[in-house]
Computed example of a mutant assay.
Amino acid sequence: MTRPKVIDAWIQPWTKEVVEGLPDRALHVFKQYGQASRLQDGISLEVMMEEMDAAQVDISLISGGPMVPMHLVLEAMERWPDRLRAVVWTDPTQTSIVRALADLEALVRNYPVCGFKMEAFALWRDPTDRVFYPLYAKCAELGIALQTQVGGTGPLYPSRTGQPLLIDEIALDFPELKIVCGHVGSPWVDEMIHVAWKHPNVFIDTSARLPKYFEPAFTKFLTSFGQDKCIYASDWPVLDFQRPLGQVDSLGLSPEVREKFLVSNAITAFGLDDLRA
């Protein structure tokens, strides 16, 4: 496969089925982003891919989660296998931990899975909750990344679950596990930078954040001592594909740092070795 020029590390299906299954407290975030009218009727998978093409995004990591049914992720994977990689979710609180582990192993065996999505806030739990630890161990065993939300929650759920110091604990317990922390971590950006600097396998992705609003400390991290730790992502459809990508130029990145941010760091964190060519 030709080496991509842009990898978007966080998107999700947004069909009518997703919208109809969301609780009102989850829809709140789209009002805050001014996207409610665009998103309230859902967006087909076909339109998702058309928008991805229009923005010249080569590869996207498409994820399920507590509020996004996995069958939609798998359908998209089957239809566009050369453009999408899966970040999957299995719920130990709805079945059993043993069943969730078996389901995760089956997904990795049967699909090109590169990560496990954790949005602990949606379950009213911290990411350090004991029910998740066997899944983290399985991710490390299978060689897939943990991708999780950090920072304050846009949906009306407790924000404490997104504190970066919780990631510090997970990274200490699972030093082999690659952890990608989405949304940069505001209002705890300095904590997130410290945790990513401290742990070799902790990364930060910029999903749901426009470059023009990056905190100065994060921009400094991205352009200097954290240039190997920062990963581009949109969180489509919270942000569309084009808007955040179009603002990357405003960061004044060197060609080397720009390539790391848009491509190489995602390849490293998610084990996308076939895309290195």
Results as ranks from 00 to 15, higher is better:
Thr2Ala: 09
Pro4Gly: 09
Lys5Arg: 14
Ile7Gln: 03
Ile7Asn: 04
Trp10Glu: 06
Gln12Ile: 04
Pro13His: 06
Trp14Asn: 08
Lys16Ala: 08
Glu20Asn: 12
Glu20Thr: 08
Gly21His: 05
Gly21Arg: 01
Leu22Asp: 00
Pro23Phe: 15
Arg25Gly: 03
Arg25Lys: 13
His28Ala: 15
Phe30Met: 12
Gln35Tyr: 09
Ala36Thr: 06
Ser37Asn: 06
Asp41Met: 10
Met48Asp: 02
Met49His: 02
Glu50Gln: 13
Glu51Ser: 05
Asp58Gly: 03
Ile59Lys: 09
Ile59Val: 04
Ser60Leu: 01
Leu61Gln: 02
Leu61Ser: 02
Gly64Val: 00
Gly65Thr: 00
Gly65Asn: 00
Met67Val: 05
Met70Ser: 11
Met70Asp: 11
Val73Ser: 05
Arg79Val: 01
Trp80Asn: 00
Leu84Phe: 04
Leu84Tyr: 00
Ala86Glu: 07
Ala86Met: 02
Ala86Ile: 03
Ala86Trp: 00
Val87Asp: 09
Thr90Phe: 02
Pro92Thr: 02
Thr93Ala: 15
Ile97Asn: 07
Ile97Gly: 11
Arg99Thr: 14
Arg99His: 08
Ala100Ile: 07
Glu105Asp: 11
Leu107Gln: 01
Val108Leu: 03
Val108Gly: 03
Arg109Ser: 07
Asn110Val: 00
Tyr111Phe: 09
Pro112Cys: 14
Val113Asp: 08
Phe116Gly: 12
Phe116Tyr: 15
Phe116Asn: 04
Met118Ala: 04
Phe121Ala: 15
Ala122Glu: 06
Ala122Met: 12
Leu123Glu: 14
Leu123Arg: 11
Trp124Cys: 10
Asp126Phe: 09
Asp129Ala: 15
Phe132Ser: 11
Tyr133His: 14
Pro134Asn: 13
Ala137Met: 12
Cys139Ser: 10
Glu141Arg: 14
Leu142Ala: 07
Thr148Gly: 13
Gly154Val: 02
Gly154Phe: 11
Ser159Phe: 02
Thr161Cys: 15
Leu165Val: 13
Leu165Met: 14
Asp168Thr: 10
Glu169Asp: 14
Phe174Thr: 11
Pro175Trp: 07
Pro175Val: 09
Lys178Cys: 11
Val180Leu: 08
Cys181Gly: 11
Cys181Trp: 03
Val184Thr: 14
Val184Gly: 07
Pro187Asn: 06
Pro187Thr: 06
Asp190Phe: 00
Glu191Cys: 03
Glu191Arg: 05
Ile193Met: 10
His194Glu: 09
Val195Asp: 10
Ala196Tyr: 02
Trp197Cys: 07
Ile204Glu: 07
Arg209Tyr: 06
Pro211Cys: 10
Lys212His: 15
Phe214Ile: 06
Pro216Gln: 04
Thr219Met: 08
Thr223Tyr: 02
Thr223Trp: 03
Ser224Val: 00
Phe225Trp: 05
Asp228Ile: 04
Lys229Thr: 08
Ala233Gln: 04
Asp235Gly: 00
Leu239Lys: 10
Leu239Asp: 08
Asp240Phe: 03
Gln242Asn: 05
Leu245Gln: 12
Leu245Ser: 14
Gln247Asp: 13
Gln247Pro: 07
Glu256Val: 12
Glu256Asn: 10
Arg258Ser: 07
Glu259Ile: 02
Glu259Lys: 12
Glu259Asp: 14
Glu259Met: 11
Lys260Arg: 15
Lys260Gln: 13
Ala266Ile: 06
Ala269Lys: 10
Leu272Val: 08
Leu272Arg: 09
Leu272Asn: 03
Asp273Met: 12
Asp273Cys: 09
Asp274Phe: 11
Leu275Ala: 13
Ala277Leu: 13
